[in-house]
Structures are given as C-alpha cells and as structure tokens.
Simulated scan of single mutants.
Amino acid sequence: MYYAIVAALMLVFPLASILVDVSIHQVQPGWFLVGKWFVFWAVGVRLFVAGLRQMLQPRYTAEQILGIRGDDVLLVVRELGFANASIGIVGILSIVATGWVVAAALAGGIFYGLAGINHALQGHRNRLENVAMASDLFAAVVLLGYCIWVATR
C-alpha cells in the first residue's frame, strides 16, 4: 500500500492533474503547471497524509520506515508529523492561494532534499526507506527546479 500511495502522490496524480488542466483550460504544459500540481500533491497531500499518520501512528514510521524500535523515538516522530502536516496544509491551500505555490515549493523542496540526503546516508536502509529516499530526492529536484525556473524568468 505504501508504494502505491507514494507513486500516486508523487507522480501519477500530479501528471494526471497537469494533463487534465492542459486539456480543459487549453494551456501549454510547463513549469507553471508542474509547480501548481506537484506542490498540491507532493507537498500538500503527501506531507499532510504522512503527518497525520506520524501523529496518530508514530510507531509505523519509526519501525517500518526508519527501522527504529522502542518507545523513546515516538515523541520525535509525532513532532515530525506536526511539521509534515503543517507544510502539507500550506501545499494543499496553495491550490486556492496561488501566491503560496513558490513558498510551499521551496519549503517542500528543501525538506525533501534534506530528508532524501539523510536517507541516503543511512547504510542500513530497508526497502521502504529506499522508496522514501528515491521519492524524496525526486520531489526535491522537481520542486527546486520549479523554484529556479520562477527565480530566473
């Protein structure tokens, strides 16, 4: 289930949303739509859903994704959930507050980049952490690429 959710929120839904937007509004595909839809799905929905899970079920993230056992880590994972949900809410609201797209892309891109690097530095990654690492680094490239496009146009 984790793999399907990550694939849907990080690739399938953003690309489908871009295609729908292009076909309905007759706009050219490009970085503007990439920013709009990757911020909504990858930053907004994914981080919000991850945050909820980390707040309500911190043991799943600690044990299944990070491979850490014990109750001591649960407080930290729950606090990570607060941060993820907060960034996620900004990403979700960016669909109506379009002025927030760049800020959400920058915050999300930095977060995903640092998280992906952190996963990469772990020598004992399991399969779920490998997926988290790859999807985090992919999201960072897309989101920070969008920010660079905005800054240079």
Rank of each mutant, 00 (worst) to 15 (best):
45 V>A: 14
17 S>K: 07
68 I>P: 00
20 V>H: 07
80 L>V: 12
8 A>N: 01
25 H>V: 04
120 A>Q: 09
131 V>F: 09
50 A>I: 03
151 A>Y: 11
123 G>H: 11
67 G>E: 08
133 M>T: 04
72 D>G: 13
25 H>T: 12
75 L>W: 07
14 P>C: 08
24 I>D: 02
36 K>R: 15
150 V>W: 10
85 A>R: 07
59 R>N: 09
118 N>Y: 06
112 Y>T: 05
69 R>G: 01
15 L>G: 00
118 N>M: 10
58 P>T: 13
44 G>I: 10
27 V>P: 01
141 V>E: 01
3 Y>M: 08
70 G>S: 11
102 V>W: 05
137 L>R: 03
145 G>P: 02
121 L>H: 06
83 A>K: 07
103 A>F: 15
144 L>M: 15
126 N>Q: 07
76 V>R: 09
19 L>H: 03
17 S>R: 08
145 G>K: 06
39 V>K: 00
143 L>Q: 01
19 L>V: 13
58 P>D: 07
68 I>C: 02
24 I>W: 11
44 G>C: 13
121 L>N: 09
35 G>V: 03
39 V>N: 01
29 P>N: 09
98 T>I: 15
116 G>N: 03
146 Y>E: 02
99 G>I: 15
88 G>I: 07
7 A>L: 14
90 V>H: 01
144 L>K: 10
148 I>R: 12
58 P>Y: 09
10 M>G: 04
123 G>D: 08
126 N>K: 09
68 I>V: 15
74 L>V: 12
7 A>I: 11
37 W>I: 04
66 L>E: 05
15 L>D: 01
117 I>H: 03
106 L>R: 06
102 V>P: 00
44 G>V: 12
63 E>C: 04
41 W>F: 14
84 N>L: 14
136 D>W: 01
22 V>P: 00
89 I>K: 03
40 F>K: 02
4 A>R: 06
148 I>Y: 14
4 A>E: 03
52 L>M: 14
127 R>D: 08
15 L>I: 14
48 F>Y: 09
135 S>H: 06
82 F>A: 14
146 Y>Q: 04
40 F>W: 13
19 L>G: 05
130 N>M: 13
102 V>F: 10
120 A>S: 13
11 L>F: 10
85 A>Q: 05
54 Q>A: 11
147 C>K: 03
32 F>L: 13
148 I>P: 00
153 R>M: 12
152 T>C: 05
13 F>W: 10
130 N>G: 12
29 P>G: 03
19 L>E: 07
72 D>I: 12
49 V>W: 05
139 A>D: 01
44 G>R: 05
5 I>H: 02
55 M>I: 15
105 A>L: 06
86 S>L: 14
64 Q>R: 15
117 I>N: 02
101 V>T: 15
25 H>D: 12
96 V>N: 07
53 R>W: 03
69 R>A: 13
34 V>F: 03
29 P>Q: 07
109 G>C: 10
122 Q>P: 00
44 G>K: 07
24 I>L: 15
123 G>R: 15
83 A>N: 06
123 G>F: 08
13 F>R: 03
74 L>C: 10
100 W>Q: 13
41 W>R: 04
4 A>W: 06
106 L>Q: 06
55 M>R: 10
